[in-house]
Amino acid sequence: MPHIAHITLVVRDYDEALAFYIGKLGFTLVEDTYQPEQGKRWVTIRPPGAAKDATTILLARATTPEQAAAIGNQTGGRVFLFLATDDFARDHAAFTAAGVEWVRPPARHAYGEVAVFADLYGNHWDLVQFC
């Protein structure tokens, strides 16, 4: 059955992106392989605790002015990614302690508890614990 293997997140620099996603959000590095024929790296990450076959995020370094213009605004200012958690309070506190910037504070909705944060480039993410 078809499934989404990777989603691309355009970044300015691989290492600064890894420092944020691994260092602040606790993501796991899945692969970091240099591609000499293309002069780039194949860098994939996944949230902590995600299954080995879960969709990963491919960190893609911008190489053109058009790609660079999309950094931090891949969805036109809307929430881009939804990071589900089984313990909202724990992860909200951990992200806050790590210096994550909150765009909208925690709120309860019919579907669960959610807060919006910005990644190092300004992309908006939901941290959400579904009911």
Results as ranks from 00 to 15, higher is better:
P2T: 11
H3T: 14
H6W: 12
I7A: 14
I7Y: 06
T8Y: 11
V10L: 02
V11G: 00
R12F: 05
D13A: 14
D13S: 11
D15C: 01
E16R: 14
A17D: 00
A17I: 13
L18Q: 02
L18W: 15
L18V: 12
A19G: 12
A19L: 05
I22N: 01
G23Q: 05
G26R: 15
F27S: 01
E31N: 11
D32L: 05
Y34F: 02
Q35L: 14
Q35W: 03
E37F: 05
E37Q: 06
Q38N: 07
G39D: 07
K40Y: 03
W42M: 11
W42G: 04
T44R: 08
T44S: 09
I45R: 00
P47D: 03
P48Y: 10
G49H: 02
A50H: 05
A50T: 04
A51P: 03
A51C: 11
A54W: 03
T56I: 11
A62F: 04
P65H: 04
P65K: 11
P65A: 03
E66S: 15
Q67H: 08
A69G: 02
A69T: 13
A69D: 14
A69E: 05
A69V: 12
A70Q: 13
I71E: 04
I71F: 01
I71T: 00
G72V: 08
N73M: 03
Q74P: 01
Q74D: 09
Q74C: 09
T75I: 13
T75V: 09
G77R: 14
R78P: 00
F80P: 00
L81R: 04
F82A: 08
A84L: 13
A84P: 06
T85L: 01
D87L: 07
D87T: 03
D87M: 04
F88S: 03
D91G: 10
A94I: 10
A94N: 14
F95I: 02
T96L: 10
A98S: 09
G99W: 09
G99L: 05
G99F: 08
E101T: 12
W102H: 11
V103N: 07
R104Q: 12
R104C: 09
R104W: 05
P105I: 05
P105Q: 14
P105K: 15
P105Y: 07
P106D: 07
A107H: 08
A107C: 02
R108V: 07
R108D: 07
A110G: 15
Y111G: 03
Y111D: 12
G112Q: 06
G112D: 05
E113L: 13
E113N: 06
E113Q: 09
V114F: 01
A118L: 06
A118H: 13
D119E: 09
L120G: 06
Y121R: 02
H124Q: 13
H124G: 00
H124F: 10
H124T: 07
W125D: 08
W125M: 07
L127K: 05
V128E: 10
V128D: 04
Q129C: 06
C131L: 12
C131R: 10
